[in-house]
Design a binder for these strands. Structure first.
Length: 644
RNA sequence: GCCGGCGUAGCUCAGGGGUAGAGCAACUGAUUCGUAAUCAGUAGGUCCACAGUUCAAUUCUGUGCGCCGGCACCA
């Protein structure tokens, strides 16, 4: 005799087990029409599910966010059906809903190409129009395996074989087509609607393992209505305009060329941006008790053997040989072993701890070609690296301190929020399990102390210790690790770092590896996308252009530029023989934040007309006022008087 | 590294078995014009590289390199 409690708190009694459909009908025909699925005690299920005991029920309609995920999941099923109708012999594997859409991985000798999209999409629309009911079916495990084997679907059969014994095997049928699926689903394929679109093809390894077969993946996007789909596609176009590779080219910030794959040629404006960020970081580190050092680029393999990099990281290292010498040197892929060498010079005392050693360290790593991406993933990059040598007791306070510094710096750069991931021990690692237990526990405790909330990222730690990853998102939604904090008990041991403690005996320090930006290259790439090239004044590589209206104002324009330069701004003049409209347009397209326009009037009255990027207002102020105002605004956030 | 796509002027792109075109940019000249494109003219290309097919290849085929989207790998 189930009693159904609805979201408004009302309760409906039924004499016998009922399906969601029946309950919805009992409430009203409108709801019966709109209810696509439901949540029973918080768990999403098919609307046709029978409820046989008291439960809280929430109906899911098209307007609910939960419907979106189901639309996407169902669209994946329809995609698979369409593909199998059009391309017999193609095997299905998995097809989940994902952020913004869905994908399906197919096993097939000839991978799909974008040319296949039109016919597949047409077939999908046909299947949606058919409106076949999604029917759930429970099947015995062995029977299900035999069923898929008989169809030649060996991937599906394997999926079932690998499911835990306790798992109930369910299949969903839509018309003639049937798939292994946990559910839940909408009522019919018609409920998916027509606001979907196939987006791209990609190779993907079966079960995400590169030793397995490569499958052909089709990505699609799906939404509740055409308006949402259009908005999403528009947003994608907008995001493309923010792409740091495009902006880097348009603004003349940097380039990369074939002869130095994965390395950045910084142009004057790009390097100005880089230096602004570097100078800022140096000030912040100086103020936070770090000591900056500089260590060698090329280091003998002997040191890398000691540190464990030779064993664990060699495939990512650039090795250098000299003609007449029987030596192998490696370009450093990380700075840590070098920093330990500095730590090891002389006898260290516990009084020096925590010792925070920072370096803007240029590192080289041989990254797989497919991983390279603009300046965000390169083979030569500069980390804002530091190693904190400390005692175990200092791990937690140093973590708190670090997270505060990182948050403050991210905020200054305009990133109000970021995600944190906790990566624990990887398969290939140095150090005993005991040491890893200790390191992971210490980092977790430090997080608790610092109030850091994180998601788990299993098996993704560095080979010498667990790490926290601070993740920022680029324009098109890809996540990038920037900051990191790693607890390391291994390297101090391997490289024999020690200090004399209060008790007069020698002890091992703990090493905290940490970076805030991660690498300047990646961080600046994200920064470019964050601002779409329209930087706040303190970051802009060219902060103002003084543009003339008539050539009579040339001398005055030079005077204005000089005054602004003296005040510390980076300024250019535009004395070209063009209309002011053209000048405004040109410098706006280059994202110059301030345009100082001078014509006859300004020259006579010693004023400038300030125009902000993106605005159309003109602010005519005296030269002194303009200099004072812009100088104040161009002050980096950490140097501002109102800094709390 | 793997799967797919792409590689034509500085940029964005069109074209196509008989050795190439547009717009913008550049350069020259005219124009001094008050807030997102003044007008006219000029110049600019081993059509990514190498090999093959062909009377003829930038176009077709193969290989390599690079780029783009994913996967795998990672700051």
């Amino acid at each position: 005799m189930p009693a159904i409690t609805l979201p408004d708190g009302s309760v409906r009694q039924f004499d016998a087990p009922v399906t969601g459909t029946t309950v919805a009908e009992a409430i009203g025909p409108g709801l019966a029409r709109a209810a696509l699925a439901m949540k029973v005690d918080g768990k999403p299920v098919d609307i046709s599910t029978e409820i046989d005991q008291d439960a809280h029920v929430v109906f899911i309609t098209r307007r609910d966010i939960d419907a979106l995920e189901m639309i996407r999941h169902d669209a994946a099923h329809v995609l698979a059906e369409a593909v199998q109708e059009l391309f017999p012999g193609t095997q299905v594997t998995i097809g989940p809903s994902i952020e913004n859409g869905f994908y399906y991985d197919f096993a097939r000798n000839d991978p799909f190409t974008p040319e296949d999209f039109a016919p597949i999409e047409a077939k999908m629309r046909e299947i949606v129009a058919r409106g076949a009911r999604f029917e759930r079916q429970v099947m015995d495990r062995e029977e299900a395996i035999a069923f898929f084997q008989a169809k030649g679907e060996k991937y599906k059969a394997q999926l079932i074989e690998d499911l835990p014994r306790s798992e109930v095997i369910t299949l969903y049928r839509q018309g003639e087509w049937i798939d292994l699926c946990r559910g839940p689903h909408l009522r019919t394929t018609a409920d998916i609607g027509t606001a979907f679109k196939l987006m791209k093809v990609a190779g993907a390894y079966w079960r995400g393992d590169h030793r397995n077969a490569m499958l052909s993946r089709i990505y699609g996007t799906a939404w509740r209505d055409q308006k949402e789909l259009d908005a999403y596609l528009h947003q994608l176009e907008e995001a493309e305009r923010r792409d740091h590779r495009r902006i880097g080219k348009d603004m003349g910030l940097f380039h990369i060329q074939e002869e130095a794959v994965g390395s950045v040629f910084w142009h004057p404006k790009g390097w100005k941006l880089y230096r602004t960020a570097e100078t800022y970081m140096r000030r912040r580190l100086d103020a936070s008790g770090y000591q900056e050092v500089k260590t060698p680029q090329l280091v003998d393999r002997i040191l890398w053997e000691k540190s464990g990099h030779w064993e664990n990281y060699r495939q990512n290292m650039f090795i250098a040989h000299v003609e007449d010498e029987d030596k192998s040197l490696a370009l450093k892929p990380m700075n840590c072993p070098c920093h330990v060498q500095i730590f090891r010079q002389g006898l260290r005392s516990y009084r020096e701890l925590p010792l925070r050693m920072a370096e803007f360290g240029a590192c080289h790593r041989y990254e797989p070609s497919g991983a390279l991406h603009g300046i965000m993933r390169v083979r030569a990059f500069t980390q804002d690296d530091a190693h904190i040598f400390c005692t175990e007791a200092q791990i937690a306070p140093e973590t708190v301190r670090f997270v505060e510094l990182l948050s403050s710096i991210y905020r200054d750069f305009g990133f109000e929020s970021f995600r944190v991931k906790f990566s624990d021990r990887p398969e290939a690692r140095s150090g005993s399990d005991d040491v890893w237990d200790q390191a992971e526990a210490a980092l977790k405790e430090a997080c608790a102390t610092a109030g850091v909330e994180y998601e788990l990222n299993p098996g993704e730690g560095a080979f010498y210790g667990p790490k926290l990853e601070f993740v920022l998102r680029d324009a098109i939604g890809r996540d990038w690790q920037c900051g990191t904090l790693q607890v390391d008990f291994v390297l101090p041991e391997r490289l024999d770092a020690e200090y004399v403690a209060e008790d007069g005996a020698r002890h091992r320090p703990v090493m905290l590896h940490r970076a805030i930006l991660g690498s300047f290259e990646r961080f600046l790439g994200i920064l470019i996308e964050q601002y779409a090239g329209r930087f706040p004044l303190w970051l802009a590589p060219v902060q103002a252009v003084v543009a003339t209206i008539v050539s009579d104002a040339d001398a005055y324009a030079e005077e204005v530029a000089t005054a602004l330069t003296k005040a510390g701004l980076t300024v250019r003049t535009d004395l070209t023989n063009q209309k002011i409209n053209a000048k405004v347009r040109e410098h706006s397209l280059l994202h110059v934040p301030v345009l100082a326009v001078v014509g006859r009037k300004e020259a006579e009255t010693r004023t400038v007309a300030l125009r902000r990027l993106g605005g159309s207002a003109q602010d005519v102020v005296s030269l002194e006022e303009a200099v004072a105002r812009l100088a104040a605004e161009a002050t980096p956030p950490d140097l501002r008087a109102d800094r709390v």
